[in-house]
Simulated assay, not measured.
Amino acid sequence: MNMKFDPNNAVIKLCMRGMSLEDSGSIEEAITMFHKAWHETTDDYERFLAAYHLARLQKEIADKLKWMEASLKYAQEINDENVKSAYATLYLNIAQCYEELGDSDNAKRNFELLNSYKSTPSDEGPFYHGTKADLQAGDLLTAGGNSNYEPELKMNHIYFTANANGAGLAAALAKGEGRERVYIIEPTGEFENDPNVTDKKFPGNLTRSYRSKSPLKIVGEEIEWAKLTTADRRKWHKNLAENKGDIIN
Rank of each mutant, 00 (worst) to 15 (best):
Glu177Asn: 13
Glu190Trp: 09
Asp63Gln: 15
Asn146Arg: 13
Pro151Thr: 13
Tyr91Gly: 00
Met155Phe: 05
Ser116Ile: 03
Thr131Ala: 12
Asp194Phe: 01
Val182Pro: 04
Ala70Trp: 10
Leu113Ile: 01
Gly166Phe: 04
Lys73Trp: 09
Thr89Arg: 12
Tyr159Pro: 00
Leu141Trp: 03
Asn148Cys: 11
Gly168Trp: 05
Ala170Met: 15
Arg179Ser: 02
Phe111Pro: 00
Lys73Ala: 12
Pro195Tyr: 09
Asn156Leu: 10
Asn82Gln: 14
Asn93Phe: 07
Ala107Val: 06
Ala172Gln: 05
Trp67Val: 00
Gly130Thr: 04
Leu114Tyr: 15
Glu112Arg: 12
Glu177Gln: 06
Ala86Cys: 08
Asn93Met: 12
Glu99Val: 01
Leu141Ile: 15
Gly178Gln: 10
Ser119Ala: 07
Pro126Ala: 10
Ser71Val: 03
Ser122Trp: 06
Leu101His: 08
Leu65Phe: 08
Ala70Met: 14
Gly168Val: 05
Leu173Asn: 04
Arg181Ala: 00
Tyr159Phe: 15
Leu65Pro: 01
Gln96Val: 12
His129Leu: 11
Arg109Phe: 07
Lys118Gln: 15
Glu124Pro: 00
Gly178Trp: 07
Asp80Gln: 11
Thr131Tyr: 06
Leu92Met: 14
Gly138Gln: 05
Glu69Asp: 11
Asn156Glu: 11
Met155Lys: 11
Ser85Ala: 12
Lys175Thr: 13
Asp80Ala: 05
Tyr91Thr: 00
Leu65Cys: 06
Ile78Glu: 10
Leu140Gln: 08
Thr161Phe: 04
Asp199Gln: 10
Trp67Ser: 06
Val83Trp: 02
Leu72Phe: 10
Asn193Tyr: 10
Tyr149Gln: 07
Ser71Asn: 07
Gly125Thr: 00
Gly144Ile: 05
Glu177Ser: 15
Leu90Glu: 06
Leu153Gln: 11
Phe127Val: 03
Glu124Ile: 13
Glu186Leu: 02
Glu81Ser: 13
Ala133Leu: 15
Asp105Ala: 12
Glu180Trp: 08
Ala75Thr: 02
Asn163Ile: 03
Asn110Phe: 06
